[in-house]
Structures are given as C-alpha cells and as structure tokens.
Amino acid sequence: MEFQDFLALIHPAIAVVIVFPLIGTVVNFAWQTRVRRLQTAAKDKSKIPSSVGPEHIKMGRWLTGWVVGLTLVGLAYHIVEHILSDRTWTKAPLQVAFILLMFLDTIAALVLLYLAKQKIWRGLFATLTGMGIVLLGCQDGVFRRTNEWYWSHYYIGITATLLMIFSLAIVQDIYKDKSNRWRTFHIILNSFALLLFIGQGLTGTRDLLEIPLHWQKTYIFSCDFNNKTCPQAVPPSEDTR
C-alpha cells in the first residue's frame, strides 16, 4: 500500500473505532431513558439511574460532531484526490478556493450550532452546516453512485448526517415541549437514522472491496464492469520472475 492508500483508510477507521461504538452507546442510553420515563409515568420505582437522560444527550451531541467530521473527512479525501490528479488549482483556482472556504464555513457553522441557544440561531447554523455538507458532496471527484442512489454509501451517509444535524438543533426544544411532539418526532427520525447507519456499515464494506489500491487502478478501470470481464493479464517472463 502506498501513502495515499493509507489516507483512504482514515474515513472507515474513524467509523469503526469511534462512530459505531458511539452509536451503540447512544442507542443504549436512549432505550434506558425511555424505559425509565415509562416506569416513572406508571409510578413504578425504576432501577435505572436518573443520569441516563443527561448522558444520552451528552453522547448524542458527541455523536453528531463525529458524524459530521467523518463525512467531511470522507468528502475531503475524494475532493483533494481529484484536485491533485486533475491539477484543478491551475485550471480553476477560484473553485479550489471556494471548496476550501466551504470546508471552513461548514466547520464554523457546526461549532456555532453547538454554542447557539435561541431557536432562530440553532435553525440558521443547522441549515448552514447542512448546506455546506451538501455543496461539498456535489463537487467533482466524489463517488455518488447516483444510478443506485437507494444503495449508495454517499446518499445514505449524507441523509444520516443531515438527520444528526437536525437532532442537535432540536434537542433543547424536546425538553421544553410539554406535548412531547418534538420527543416523538426525535424518536421517529433517529430510529430511521439508525437504519441508515446500519446501511452505511453494509455499503461501506462493499465499497472497500470495490476500491482498488492506487497502483492497481489503471488495470481495474480498464475492465468491462457491465460484462464483468477484464483484459487478459500478460504473465511475467522467465527473466523477471
């Protein structure tokens, strides 16, 4: 493996080592929080400590940050690889400057979203963060598998990321809403997000199998993917064995 092949492993490594364990922790706390709330409402004594609610919120906030960061890392690898291979900085320097600005603006918007208290500012910074993710995902070099959008690692990942951003934006409203409508909405959306993360595990594994090493790409991309055939490789001569 060459250095750029190791760089390609940063995105899946963060997912496996940090993000997916965090998802398990958040789901565990979410389930305990709901069970404790139902037991309390039924006036039963719960053995689940009251700290699970605050811990669920804290871990959920961490999860959103890591998911957005993971998405930015994945997008950055493919965008930078395309810029370097196509020498985009010489052909369209303004485009490169725009991409860099979008990365910085998206990170700044996410930080401000964490700090925002009023609903209008949370809505604004959540929108800016989501827009930055979507605009970066539209750049050249990002493999989207649009013909199979329903089974695309890109589209599933972007959707899950946007749901995490939205969840972070509404978390303060959940505890202020006495009708529990925001809470119900939060449960439905994040249950769907959990299914998307499972899909990310499956599609990410598939994509790792399909991505060749850097020195193999010339040969692999010469294959006929429709007929699933590749040019016949020339065996090495006796002198080179």
Rank of each mutant, 00 (worst) to 15 (best):
126 A>Y: 06
173 D>G: 05
216 Q>E: 15
151 W>V: 00
195 L>Q: 04
71 T>S: 10
94 L>I: 09
195 L>D: 00
115 L>G: 05
97 A>R: 11
100 L>V: 13
180 N>S: 10
63 L>I: 00
14 I>N: 05
73 V>W: 08
204 G>M: 01
17 V>I: 15
83 I>W: 02
195 L>R: 04
64 T>V: 03
148 E>R: 13
60 G>I: 02
5 D>I: 07
160 A>L: 02
36 R>G: 06
39 Q>E: 14
145 R>P: 00
169 A>D: 06
159 T>M: 05
119 K>Q: 13
100 L>F: 12
177 D>P: 08
231 P>S: 03
154 Y>E: 01
205 T>P: 03
39 Q>D: 09
177 D>T: 09
7 L>M: 11
85 S>W: 01
34 R>V: 13
79 I>L: 07
66 W>Y: 14
109 A>V: 00
114 Y>F: 13
9 L>R: 11
182 W>F: 15
142 V>C: 08
104 L>R: 07
38 L>S: 01
172 Q>R: 10
191 S>L: 14
225 F>W: 05
241 R>H: 05
128 L>W: 05
229 T>N: 09
135 L>G: 06
151 W>D: 03
94 L>T: 12
16 V>T: 13
70 L>C: 09
172 Q>K: 03
70 L>S: 11
239 D>N: 13
79 I>D: 03
206 R>C: 00
239 D>F: 12
122 R>A: 08
228 K>C: 06
41 A>D: 14
16 V>G: 12
221 F>I: 11
67 V>G: 05
232 Q>F: 13
182 W>H: 13
29 F>T: 04
167 S>E: 02
19 V>L: 15
10 I>Y: 11
31 W>R: 15
97 A>I: 09
10 I>H: 08
39 Q>T: 01
231 P>H: 05
190 N>M: 04
143 F>A: 06
146 T>L: 10
172 Q>I: 00
56 H>K: 09
204 G>P: 07
9 L>D: 09
206 R>S: 01
48 I>D: 00
125 F>S: 00
44 D>A: 12
238 E>A: 14
136 L>T: 08
125 F>H: 02
82 H>P: 02
17 V>C: 07
185 F>I: 13
129 T>A: 06
226 N>T: 15
101 L>S: 12
15 A>L: 03
207 D>T: 07
165 I>L: 06
179 S>F: 07
175 Y>V: 07
111 V>D: 00
41 A>Q: 08
127 T>G: 01
12 P>I: 04
39 Q>G: 08
25 T>E: 01
151 W>F: 11
88 T>A: 12
154 Y>I: 04
239 D>S: 12
48 I>R: 01
178 K>F: 05
189 L>K: 00
110 L>H: 04
169 A>R: 10
174 I>P: 00
15 A>D: 02
69 G>W: 04
49 P>A: 03
14 I>Y: 03
140 D>S: 14
9 L>F: 15
56 H>E: 10
184 T>E: 09
176 K>E: 11
223 C>D: 08
203 T>N: 09
99 I>S: 10
175 Y>D: 07
190 N>H: 13
111 V>A: 08
179 S>I: 14
141 G>Y: 09
76 A>S: 14
131 M>A: 12
52 V>C: 01
36 R>M: 12
156 I>K: 07
144 R>A: 04
98 F>Q: 15
142 V>F: 11
224 D>V: 07
126 A>V: 03
98 F>H: 14
183 R>C: 01
37 R>C: 04
155 Y>W: 12
23 I>A: 04
154 Y>W: 08
186 H>S: 02
